[in-house]
């Protein structure tokens, strides 16, 4: 009788250097708000939000992990059991993406089973021309702005979709 009611819970993590906008992206997605003050995340904060994909309800449990330039320093126990993660860079600050290929490699080793998306955030701070000229070591799957909300829901929904389709590949 209950067979139409399908649901699944998935743990995802947001990772990347300091102040790239991890908390702001989550806040935009979960509460529809952009925090107007920068308060650095200390340790960890967990949020949850349900995404509806057709008949399927995906409950995303989002681990907002304090920014870390060197991913080796992220405690493994925060990443354990993660089904997916979003690696976030700040498009307007090269220092947050110049090492991204290496950083992603390290994260892959720490979470071999997790699906990955790469977000280039703070899109609103760059002109179209600047965006075109940007050469990132790894091409982001989504260019987002937590400030305007552009592509934020799309990104989280896309990740939810990837997580429930085992055969899907990460970009």
């Amino acid at each position: 009788m209950d067979s139409t009611k399908q649901g699944i819970s998935k743990k995802i993590a947001l990772l990347g250097s300091h102040a790239v906008g991890k908390t702001s992206l989550i806040s935009r997605f979960v509460t529809r708000e952009f925090p107007n003050e920068y308060l650095t995340t200390i340790g960890l904060r967990v949020d949850q939000k349900t995404v509806q994909l057709g008949d399927l309800t995906v409950e995303l449990i989002i681990w907002d992990i304090a920014g870390q330039d060197d991913p080796v320093r992220i405690p493994q126990y925060y990443l354990n059991g993660a089904h997916g993660y979003i690696f976030v860079v700040d498009l307007s600050r090269e220092s947050t993406w110049s090492q991204m290929d290496h950083q992603i490699q390290v994260l892959e080793a720490m979470m071999p089973k997790a699906k990955r998306l790469v977000a280039g955030n703070k899109k609103d701070l760059l002109s179209d021309k600047e965006l075109q000229e940007l050469k990132l070591p790894v091409t982001p799957d989504f260019l987002t702005s937590a400030f305007t909300g552009e592509n934020v829901d799309e990104m989280f929904h896309h990740l939810a979709q990837i997580l429930v389709h085992d055969d899907a590949t990460t970009a």
């Binding site: 819970s9 743990k11 449990i61 354990n80 059991g81 993660a82 089904h83």
Partner: peptide, 8 residues
């Protein structure tokens, strides 16, 4: 609670 993922 599932130990590794922390999921309820």
């Amino acid at each position: 609670i599932q130990k590794d993922s922390g999921l309820s």
